[in-house]
């Protein structure tokens, strides 16, 4: 196994993190979609925990099931989708909970922000209306208290002139400011967990830097658990304590952030890291790349899903799907190889 270099503490030490109370426990989650062409297995036997105050990064290529895991958790699956398994929020089973009951948890105790803030903001209502509504509904606050709290929240996410801007409509904000408004709304009720699905993917790198800085501050100031879903390993590297790597609906590797980046143990994780062009370092005319393309979820290959693209594949990979197995404390992978 590759040695992970010793370095300044990144995130909480593993022992302390494991002792923190669990906010979200997902066990054996399977998500299926019925389509005219057959069943799509978008999420396969996914299990993980999110603990208080920690940031979990979920990384994988588009279509690997990252979003659908959390759409299942939030009870937001499309009509043709079905999730089975167990999702516990603070020890309470929420998978299959009726929407009215779930609504008391969603928005108040866990909330989600998306890639395109325009799809979740109502273009016809002022930001003020959209914010106070949440507080009136979930916290039973009066209008003026709710507005005061909303302005504070906009200040917290660093919207300049929040008192004046709160009267404006979403289209009067820039993309980066809209994303900050979304974060402010998501944090209004001080949720235990914030799920951020590609929160900076649609933004310029300069604005992305502002949002990442903001999320970093919120993480330390509010102690909110954050789930950060992204295809960008750079975004994961800066904010996450732990990382889950997904491929074709499965978690193929998990570990602490430094373990994943400095000692990847699944060939897919290794391939992803190597194929990223870097800002520094020696010249290479050819970038290492992963050959082929992600599988069609309706026609998965036999054995290991990654096998057709894997440089290490051997006979066993063709016949036997690798089960996820522990390879260290808090560290697991789904691969037949003992070490890379």
């Amino acid at each position: 196994m590759t040695e992970v270099p010793e370095a300044a503490a990144v995130g909480p030490p593993p022992a302390a993190a494991a002792e923190r109370p669990t906010v979200l426990a997902v066990d054996g989650l399977n998500t299926r979609f019925d389509t005219p062409e057959g069943e799509v297995c978008a999420v396969n036997d996914v299990s993980f925990r999110v603990r208080e105050g920690e940031t979990v990064g979920i990384v994988g290529e588009s279509g690997s099931g990252k979003s659908q895991v959390f759409m299942s958790v939030m009870g937001l699956l499309a009509a043709n989708g079905r999730a089975t398994g167990s999702v516990k929020f603070r020890d309470q089973e929420i998978l299959g909970m009726p929407p009215q009951k779930l609504n008391r948890i969603r928005g108040a105790h866990m909330s989600m922000i998306f890639q395109d803030p325009m799809t979740s903001l109502n273009p016809y209502l002022t930001v003020s209306r959209q914010m106070t509504e949440v507080l009136v509904q979930h916290k039973g606050m009066g209008e003026s208290d709710a507005e005061k709290r909303s302005v504070e929240m906009l200040d917290l996410v660093r919207i300049p002139e929040a008192k004046r801007r709160i009267r404006m409509y979403p289209h009067e904000f820039s993309g980066g400011m809209r994303q900050r408004v979304m974060i402010a709304i998501a944090l209004l009720c001080q949720p235990d967990m914030l799920i951020a699905d590609e929160p900076t993917t649609a933004l310029d790198v300069t604005v992305q830097a502002q949002i990442l800085e903001l999320m970093h501050d919120l993480k330390t100031e509010l102690n909110t658990a954050i789930v950060l879903i992204t295809h960008d390993l750079g975004v994961i590297a800066g904010l996450s304590d732990r990382v889950l790597v997904m491929y074709a609906g499965n978690i193929v590797e998990r570990g602490a952030v430094r373990e994943i980046f400095y000692g990847p143990q699944h060939p897919y994780t290794e391939g992803l890291l190597k194929s990223m062009p870097r800002l520094t370092g020696t010249e290479q005319t050819e970038l290492p790349s992963i050959p082929g393309q992600p599988p069609n979820l309706q026609h998965l290959p036999s054995g290991c899903n990654f096998r057709p693209r894997c440089a290490y594949a051997f006979d066993r990979c063709r016949v036997e799907e690798p089960a996820q197995r522990d390879i260290g404390p808090g560290r697991a992978k789904a691969c037949h190889l003992d070490a890379l």
């Binding site: 830097a209 390993l233 750079g234 975004v235 590297a237 800066g238 430094r258 870097r278």
Partner: peptide, 12 residues
């Protein structure tokens, strides 16, 4: 400087 680096130590 805004580009997030896929390297936790360097990025932080």
């Amino acid at each position: 400087s805004a580009v997030p680096l896929p390297d936790p130590d360097a990025e932080r």
